[in-house]
Amino acid sequence: MSKNSGEVKKFTGYHATIMIVSFFAVVITVNMIMARFALSTFSGTVVDNSYVASQKYNQWLEQARTQKAHGWTVSPAVRKADKASITVTGPDGAGLQSATMEALAEHPIGRTEPFEISFANIGEGEFQSIEPLPEGRWKLKIIVSQNDNMMRVVRDIR
């Protein structure tokens, strides 16, 4: 009969130590990888300086009230071929004819530098970007102007 056939191996302190160290090594490694991914895809910054933003808060609220008083409606941004298209209507529901529009296109997680986009009014208040918009998801910071009135809106486009 073989010597090993009836023997049971003992669980020693050495085995427990190896298991505990291995467990924590896996946990720490996964945490480090996840933290690396989180920091490389989102900076965590909503505003660069929260104190300055808090000082401008009331001014922003007043601008929002003024914009609302214009009665303008800005449609969601849609992609037509490789261009962005947005419709702006006045309080009567008709498209704004003599308005101008410009925008700043930003990648939502900052993978590329922001760039400006010009828009042409192609009729009935529909504005189409002159420059092509690269594929992917973009945040458009839009400024619509008509005479002395101005409206700022943000629209996402995919």
Rank of each mutant, 00 (worst) to 15 (best):
F119M: 12
Q67N: 10
A99I: 03
I117D: 07
A81G: 06
K80Q: 04
V74C: 02
N121Q: 11
A84K: 04
A105N: 11
V78Q: 08
T112G: 05
W72Y: 03
P76F: 01
K80I: 08
E116L: 07
M101D: 08
N121C: 09
G90S: 14
V88K: 07
T100L: 10
L96D: 07
A69W: 01
A120Q: 15
V88F: 04
E102G: 11
E106G: 12
L104I: 14
G90K: 15
H70N: 07
E124G: 06
F119G: 09
D92Q: 14
S118A: 13
Q97N: 09
V78T: 12
H107C: 15
A120D: 15
Q97K: 15
W72D: 03
A120L: 11
E116S: 13
A120G: 02
Q97P: 01
A99T: 04
H107I: 05
R111S: 13
G95H: 07
G71E: 09
T100M: 13
G93T: 09
P76R: 14
E102C: 02
P108M: 12
Q67T: 04
I86L: 05
P91L: 09
L96F: 06
G125P: 01
V88H: 03
L104N: 06
R111D: 09
T73V: 00
P114M: 04
G95T: 12
S85W: 01
V78C: 00
R111K: 14
G125D: 08
V88Y: 10
G125T: 03
A81K: 05
N121W: 13
D82C: 01
H70T: 13
S98K: 04
P76T: 10
L96R: 01
G123W: 06
A69D: 15
A94L: 14
S118K: 12
A84E: 01
G93Y: 15
D92G: 13
A105V: 10
F119C: 07
W72R: 07
A81P: 05
T73D: 05
T87D: 07
S98I: 01
E113Y: 02
H107W: 12
K83W: 00
V74Q: 04
D82I: 00
A94M: 13
R111F: 07
E113K: 09
A69C: 06
Q97V: 02
H107L: 10
H107Q: 14
I122N: 08
T89A: 11
V74I: 02
G110E: 09
Q97A: 15
A69T: 02
Q97C: 08
A81D: 14
